[in-house]
Design a protein around this nucleic acid. Structure first.
Lengths: 306, 306
DNA sequence: TATCCTTACGGAATTCGTAAGCATG
DNA sequence: CATGCTTACGAATTCCGTAAGGATA
């Protein structure tokens, strides 16, 4: 048995039992993957995958059970590398952060520049995606920490901790009929053409829930991942924008008005997510604490153990 | 990085940093061990052991930290093998039990013969030693289950569950002055020359504690591991014997009298011990339940998770 | 001097790539 | 017939043994 065989098995499951994909992902030849898995199965005396002709059809019950241990082994091998890397020189290496556009654009600049100050040797890699992609990147060890408002709590292998709370803002041109109102009602908002986030992003679920609860069917004329895109279309008069407070806070473009909308859509909580069982290098703890002073090392360790 | 390197590191720590011993234990050459560890250190970029000239002197802080992950990896690799072995054919393989003489001689015969009936294909290997050796055998994966009355709860990496309770018995020749008494006092016992177990065995600590609490200093003329040895010397008139109830229960030799001594030395609890985190094959659960009907699979799994 | 780790080196075994074969959809 | 797994085979690498070297207690 060797670690390579275990890697192939894990990747085969992740890639839907397609060994050619596995070979591509792990930068090796497809026959090598096939052979390694066959040899492992032979050594263990158990089929891990059931085959139909020459294709992998499904994972066997034995394979299912084995996979759990395989993942622990590979996770812990990753930890060994991280622990060693940390001892080579504190604060050296690459730190991968997975997050959504809103966080990357409006929230992370400050903590990241602080991280760069405190760990000048550190390379930082920012991965952007949907909240579910963020979760996936954590699960596949592409990223070490994830930051998002949606979805993250759905995954049992992820540990999440609340980071900060925020509300939505309504944005509109200065001459918009609602611009004078302090607290527009949900009905008033629902009558406007709306521009906001894609359904899986940045608190959009809360927006939908609020309208649904009031039995309103608003017309969302444009959905975007990107707060800047929303602002642009709002400025061009396409409709009323609903964006996250973080995106409306600073450097707010001229000609637009922002009105807090917490009374309409409630409060959202952005969370950090970590993969259960992974060893966190010191700068991960540091970064978390820059994000929120409540995210101390002891708070994180406690959540990881629970 | 490969598994062999990790094995060498683990074994090096276990064998007191003596690589020659490691090579012997793992049936390979000493230079191979040395080289493998050096290569691992080089790959990780961290010294695992600090060297003094050409000898290993101590484990580095990094090594200390790495070792934890190394042990998880190797434990889980063992689990992979066990899981596979179990799927090859239920109830095949070798089951290693570590225990003390008293258990092996008086308690285990019944459960073991039942195990042999239910799993005829199973090879059973019985390892005998002191309670601390039993613990050590579990920690080093020499044995899968341990059964003993003493010591086992001292080890944080072992999970123990109570198996059955018992008391000590006084044994003596029929014509002994105490033979007529139903409940001899601690004072009366303390005046006799005593024959009982070695200090680390089979409830001996309770005996010592009872005398110490009463500020009595009994004269133990002979200590043995073995209840049969104690009986032999008692029969020859060397003194009053104190043995475990299990050893006095059946096939009790002629010419000797046994008196319960629970009122003097209290109750002892024999426990089973398992190494935290190891995968237990179905016959391990079966065996535990033969030992005590309370040791169900769910009870054991619950204790292992806690 | 006895023990013990490291280095050197050569043969054996393993790994891993390309090319070819064959089954599925 | 395009995709995808397995088999065959050869080159490169790694592994692992013995022998020798050097350091410690």
């Amino acid at each position: 048995m060797n670690l390579q065989q275990l890697r192939f098995v894990q990747e085969a499951v992740r890639r839907g039992l397609n060994l050619s994909e596995v070979a591509k992902a792990l930068h090796t030849s497809q026959p090598g993957v096939s052979k390694a898995i066959l040899e492992l199965e032979h050594e263990l005396g158990v089929d891990i995958f059931s085959r139909h002709g020459k294709r992998l059809r499904s994972i066997t019950p034995a394979g299912e059970q084995l996979l759990k241990s395989v993942e622990v082994v590979l996770r812990e091998v990753g930890n060994i590398k991280n622990i060693a890397a940390e001892h080579v020189r504190q604060g050296t290496g690459t730190f991968s952060i997975a997050t959504t556009h809103t966080q990357a654009r409006y929230v992370l600049p400050a903590p990241i520049s602080r991280l760069r100050q405190d760990f000048p040797q550190l390379s930082i890699s920012l991965h952007q995606g949907t909240p579910d992609q963020v979760a996936q990147m954590l699960l596949e060890d592409v990223a070490e920490i994830g930051i998002a408002t949606e979805s993250l709590t759905k995954y049992p292998d992820l540990v999440t901790l609340p980071c900060y709370d925020w509300q939505h803002m309504l944005i509109m041109p200065k001459n918009h009929p609602l611009a004078a109102r302090k607290k527009p009602s949900l009905q008033e908002v629902a009558q406007q053409p709306l521009i906001t986030y894609h359904p899986t992003f940045t608190g959009r679920t809360h927006i939908d829930q609020a309208f649904a609860a009031a039995q309103l069917k608003p017309h969302v004329v444009l959905e975007a991942i990107d707060s800047d895109v929303i602002k642009t279309y709002v400025r061009s008069g396409l409709g009323l924008g609903i964006i996250a407070e973080m995106a409306a806070a600073s450097d707010f473009p001229d000609g637009l008005v922002a009105i807090p909308a917490g009374h309409l859509f409630g409060t959202n909580t952005t969370r950090i997510a970590l993969k259960r069982g992974v060893y966190l290098r010191n700068f991960v703890y540091a970064f978390a604490q820059y994000l929120s002073s409540k995210l101390t090392q002891s708070a994180i360790d406690k959540a990881m153990r629970a």
